[in-house]
Design a protein around this nucleic acid. Structure first.
Lengths: 141, 141
DNA sequence: TTAAGGTAGATGCAAACGCATAGAACTTGA
DNA sequence: TCAAGTTCTATGCGTTTGCATCTACCTTAA
């Protein structure tokens, strides 16, 4: 077993453990973590996002994401409108209610994340950020 | 935004990117990645595993895992028998066919993992392993 | 201009998922 | 010893997922 494989296995395990831990916390209101992830991703981008862009960030198939966005639009959290420049496409953004919901959930969740990752030294945190950024392919933007 | 939150976001993103990349590869036969994950986890443990143990390693709810094991048993890849010491529980292990399947998929997948993580220096790989082990809580066993 | 090919997102459908809860087996304390 | 509480896995049920495919729109080149 190579170092690379050991590192990947360990990363997967850390991800699973932490996700379960976060998922078990009572901060999600009536959103699933996956739905929150979509709202969060939208909240980080100033301009509106394309479905395909969003899909790159979220671990969901394109059809599943399409329908999840449907539901979020129905619930008044996300705004979807046809891209005027390319009418196949779509421009997604948070509604004010969506932004509010994201923030209300995001605050306590961010505290949980901080708490969980503070088992690491500041130096390790920095190394982790550098390494994972490199792994994600460093897609500029 | 704290360092911890940045690191976590970056980790999530790396996980999503790599999982999509691996999932898109044509190495999974008629297993899903989640099913492979179960076979892989079983393959790493010498003795049989309890459902609850297995569930700690896999990002699935307990009922979903229970039914997935059902299917794997039906397909002849996993062996499930009541734990003689605690008859509520269950002992799970790979059948010979299950072990064979795991290895056949595992070989090419491991190569993909190695390729993907080799954008990191050996030192970074080592740091990543140390850090993620620490994050996973270092549950001894 | 228009036909051929490609890309973005939506939809039909069967399979899989999570939540709540049931059932069976252990444990504990009176 | 036995009732109450806990733990482990399974099951009912409505929702969500992925795969395959579809439609609509854009692009290219003849």
């Amino acid at each position: 077993m190579t170092r690379a494989n050991e590192a990947w296995e360990s990363l997967m395990r850390a991800y699973a453990v932490l996700m379960k831990q976060f998922g078990a916390e009572d901060v999600w209101g009536d959103l699933t973590m996956r739905e929150y992830d979509v709202l969060y991703t939208l909240s980080k981008c100033d301009g509106p996002l394309r479905m395909s862009e969003l899909n790159r960030h979220v671990l969901l198939s394109q059809p599943a994401l399409s329908r999840m966005v449907d539901r979020l639009v129905d619930r008044g959290l996300v705004d979807r409108c046809t891209d005027p420049g390319d009418r196949r496409g779509v421009r997604l953004s948070l509604t004010p209610a969506g932004r509010k919901t994201q923030q209300e959930i995001g605050r306590p969740h961010a505290r949980s994340v901080t708490r969980a990752l503070n088992v690491l030294t500041p130096q390790e945190l920095e190394q982790l950020a550098v390494i994972t950024r490199k792994l994600a392919g460093n897609e500029e933007r």
